[in-house]
Design a protein around this nucleic acid. Sequence first.
RNA 1: CGGGGCGUAGCGCAGUCUGGUAGCGCACCUGCUUCGGGAGCAGGGGGUCGGAGGUUCGAAUCCUCUCGCCCCGACCA
Length: 623
Amino acid sequence: MQRWSKLFIPTLREAPTDAEVASHKILLRAGYIRQLGAGIYSYLPLGQRSINKICAIVREEMNKIGQEFLLPTLNPRELWEESGRYAVMGDNMFHLKDRKGADLVLAMTHEEVITSIARNELRSYKQLPQIWYQIQTKFRDEPRPKSGLLRVRQFLMKDAYSFDIDAAGLDESYNKHDAAYRAIFTRCGLQFVAVEADSGAMGGSGSQEFMVYTDAGEDLIASSASGYAANLEKAISQLAPVEDLAPTGDGTPELVSTPGKASIADVTEFFGIQSSQDIKCVAFMGARAGHPAGEPLRPIVAFLRGDHQVNETKLTAIAGTADLRPMTPEELALHIGGPAGFLGPIGIEQVMTQGSLNGLKSGKALDKLKGVLRDVPSEGIKTIVVLDLGLEGRKNLVCGANKLDYHYRNVTPGRDFTQTLIADIRNINEGELDPIGGQPLRLGKAVEVGHIFKLGYKYTESMGARVLDANGKEVMPIMGCYGIGIERILTAAIESSAASFKAQFPDTEKAGDQYALSPTIAPYEVVVTITNVREADLLAAGEKIAADLSAAGVDVLLDDRDERAGVKFKDAELIGVPYRINIGKKLAEGQVELVDRLQQSTTDVTVESITNHLQSLLNASKQ
RNA sequence: CGGGGCGUAGCGCAGUCUGGUAGCGCACCUGCUUCGGGAGCAGGGGGUCGGAGGUUCGAAUCCUCUCGCCCCGACCA
């Protein structure tokens, strides 16, 4: 049992102006954290207790599948040069020199350190599989730290790495982490979704992010009732059928004068059509992925339905570029042949047309095409034309004529123009149906609390880790990596809870600061509030109840401060503890009040039964 | 790195335009009263105005430089 009167819990009545998001304000006001610099925070006793509880849960679950390490954060620069990440990380990594002038870095993650241990120690397939993890401070020189503990430069991360002899083994290690992560987040009281993630340039075979919906998040994810969930960068949907326009005249493309009609809205109004019956053109220049700067940029033109938005991550992956930027007017004229507002697919000189690669949509053929695109040098390259899947099979569309103040109608893909490839390159929209169960998709901001990723051979190859297999042949172990942001669990829990309180009491002035944590991660499971410590009966009863609870194994905080009841109630709520026992007037009748902040209920319980009553509540919450 | 905003007491803010040597609320300390939803009255302590330089008889206030923090964007294995 701990006594509030002896503790350091510096609560604030008002939040510092620097705090913008709910969790940041709450963490400051509740005395969990204090800021030292941009993206650098001290964890005060309450914050530390909560963090410790989260770490304990992570350890318990991770110990079921792996072994804990403690690894150095101070790393020699050479180690990161070996893996090739020294250059990749650039300014995102903190650099320093020791007294001899040797270059050191502060580790952002521990793939390099772990792999160096693996290559030195692992010799045989008999030593595999291994799952190694650590919970440590990581450093990232974020270009823009923000939102309290959500995006910081120094933070705790649980990082795990698996080494397996083959892909089947990696699948197993990956699945173990999937299960462990679900257990961890559930025990922490989080409502999460596991989404398919963009595996980036590495093209790994599997990658899942564990996300918690909150407006403070920086990612957009789509999910539906049938269990489909994906990052917007990966999400696909079923499109409702769209009625094609009836052909006019002889049904072939017809040039129409459309003076000044440069926007989708103008054009659809002019023709009296839906935006889904119009073709939108988005034009980019991009550097070929994996090639040195200085190579000429390549033109990439995307065509989508007028009511759809291009997803640059998808387009980047498809086109094999490292990045994209919009074309300048000069580039539009050169590569497409028309002015902005009147761009269209007819007449573009493409990198490849009508070839065997044309029209491929998925699978190995698509991968092959992407490979080919990557291998085409940029010198003198013709335009790469990408048609979004949403336009496949459509007829009699309206599009720009690549001529100022003119559009075409009766344009049919495949008949009137071809493309380099057809692919999914758009953002899904909320309300569209998911691809597996046909349920409406919900789109929302979310924060990433965990990520599991099939790494493959990236590090074992570059850093030279080898073991002998059963045939005595030297093979590379295959790796997976798996991260959890410890502070983000706390932050996400606060954000979610604060948001639901706010939704419930939209009018309450400070609803944004109302929240409650799961007892599993709250700094204390219960606060025993003696409403007036000057009344000997109340004081004695509170002491006894707190002592009993403590003896029963409950993590209890006794508010024995000589403060007014209102102050104590407010403080107890501020620190997010889910249960509160009020020792007050009803004691004369042998009763105390149990306030359940998660259920938002208050019940009278007899002094004799309060310990058992609370214990059963706590046990239920741990299921 | 681009755009915007802000640094005055522990927290929230006023004062800056129109220079005259710093003020309010909360918090803190003392006393009395009060005691179930951030108490009342009285008294009190605390800042040299982010930093440096300059202009001036005189600078929180004007000028120059600089440091820091927040927000939007870019970036984010």
